[in-house]
Simulated assay, not measured.
Amino acid sequence: MNFKLPVLHTLDQLGKLSETEINFESYSANERSSSDIHWLFRPEETGGSGAALIRYKAGGTSPLHVHTGFELAYIIDGEFITDQGTVKKNDLILLPPGSQHNSRSETGALVLIIWEKPAESVEGQ
Rank of each mutant, 00 (worst) to 15 (best):
V111E: 01
V87T: 09
G47H: 14
H9W: 11
V7G: 04
L72M: 12
K88P: 03
M1P: 09
T82S: 11
A29E: 14
G59E: 10
L110P: 01
Q125D: 14
N23T: 12
T61R: 05
E45F: 15
G60R: 01
T86P: 00
G47E: 11
G108H: 00
S33A: 14
H65Y: 06
N2T: 14
L5W: 02
I113C: 06
A29I: 11
D12Y: 02
E44Q: 13
R55L: 15
F70W: 08
I22W: 04
L112R: 03
S103C: 10
V87N: 01
E120P: 03
L92Q: 13
H101A: 01
G124S: 05
L8T: 05
I76V: 15
K89D: 10
K89G: 03
K57F: 11
A119T: 08
S99M: 09
K4P: 00
A73H: 01
Q125H: 15
H38M: 09
W115D: 05
S18R: 08
G98F: 04
L53A: 08
T20E: 13
S35D: 03
T46S: 13
T20P: 01
E31G: 09
E31S: 15
S34V: 05
S18T: 11
G98L: 06
E19G: 07
N102V: 06
G98W: 07
S105C: 12
G85M: 03
L94V: 12
S35E: 02
A58V: 09
L94Q: 10
R32H: 15
E120D: 14
G78H: 00
H101F: 04
L5M: 07
L11W: 05
A109Q: 00
G124M: 08
G98P: 00
A52K: 13
R104G: 06
G69S: 10
I54S: 02
A52T: 08
L64W: 01
G50M: 07
P96L: 08
F80M: 02
I76K: 01
G60M: 02
Q125I: 10
G85K: 02
F41H: 13
S28V: 14
H65L: 06
K88F: 11
V111A: 03
L110H: 00
L92H: 12
G98I: 04
Y56F: 14
E120H: 07
H38R: 09
V66R: 03
F41E: 08
S33T: 15
G108V: 03
N23Y: 05
V7D: 09
L40N: 07
E79W: 02
T68D: 12
I113Y: 02
S33C: 09
L5A: 03
T61D: 04
N30A: 14
D91M: 06
S35M: 13
H65S: 07
E25M: 09
I81K: 02
G85Y: 01
N23P: 00
D36H: 13
I93V: 15
S26R: 12
S18I: 05
D77I: 01
R55A: 09
E123M: 13
E31K: 15
S18H: 11
H67C: 03
N102D: 12
